[in-house]
């Protein structure tokens, strides 16, 4: 039983079919729904920002406690971003931008090293867990070897400060094979994901929309 009313079903079917119409060629109906989609997406983010940022993080804290009045400063910094809309004053937007980029950089230096690099290197050189919980030592040895070799070869492939010759060249060559296998796996996963979405839309059209004709 679909939770949508007949009008909603027709509207959803219309936008679905209008977007699928692009498979034939670009057409006015597709462009119509595409424009609506772009507009609604921008409006969606405005609603999100208005509620979760402006109201919850600026207006409400100031209303409840006047000591939070300093929150006007980041709001003003944010408003400075709008100076990008004018050529004359656009340089003012650099200050809030620098604030965000500087803080983010500060977080990245520590979080990337402590949160990603070190744990990933550590787990690479630990015995790997075999999916399914197998304790077969050969399986663990083979899997762990693949992981260690793969990580090193991939890193060497992306190391461009030295010419890929000799040992580095061979390791980089091995790295590209590992990368291709990984990309193939990702491609396979992506295809399956997209096809399952397609099945979902076709199911909606057949079961919910056309199904509503027969009750």
């Amino acid at each position: 039983m679909t939770p949508f009313s007949p009008i909603e079903l027709w509207l959803m079917a219309f936008v679905t079919l209008a977007i699928f119409s692009f498979l034939y060629k670009d057409n006015p109906v597709y462009r119509l729904v595409e424009s609506i989609f772009a507009g609604l997406s921008a409006g969606y983010y405005f609603g999100l920002v208005w509620d979760t940022v402006l109201m919850q993080q600026v207006v409400d804290p100031i209303k409840t406690d006047s000591s939070n009045l300093y929150l006007i400063i980041p709001a003003l910094l944010g408003i400075l971003l709008f100076s990008r809309l004018t050529q004359k004053w656009s340089y003012l937007s650099r200050v809030p931008l620098a604030f965000v980029i500087g803080s983010t950089s500060g977080i990245f230096i520590t979080s990337r090293l402590q949160g990603l690099v070190l744990p990933q290197i550590r787990t690479t050189f630990m015995p790997q867990n075999v999916p399914g919980g197998s304790t077969d030592p050969w399986m663990i040895v083979v899997l762990s070897t693949i992981v260690v070799v793969g990580v090193i070869a991939t890193l060497v492939y992306f190391y461009f400060s030295h010419e890929h010759k000799g040992v580095i060249g061979w390791t980089a060559r091995l790295g590209i094979w590992f990368i291709m296998i990984s990309f193939g796996a990702h491609f396979g996963y992506t295809v399956m994901g997209r096809v399952s979405l397609l099945i979902g839309r076709v199911q909606f059209l057949v079961e919910d929309w056309i199904g509503s004709f027969t009750g």
Binding site: V117, P131, T154
Partner: peptide, 16 residues
């Protein structure tokens, strides 16, 4: 969990 994981790890470490 072998080839794919190792490449993802390599890319994550390099990007980080």
């Amino acid at each position: 969990n072998g080839f794919n994981l190792s490449v993802q790890r390599g890319i994550i470490v390099g990007a980080a």
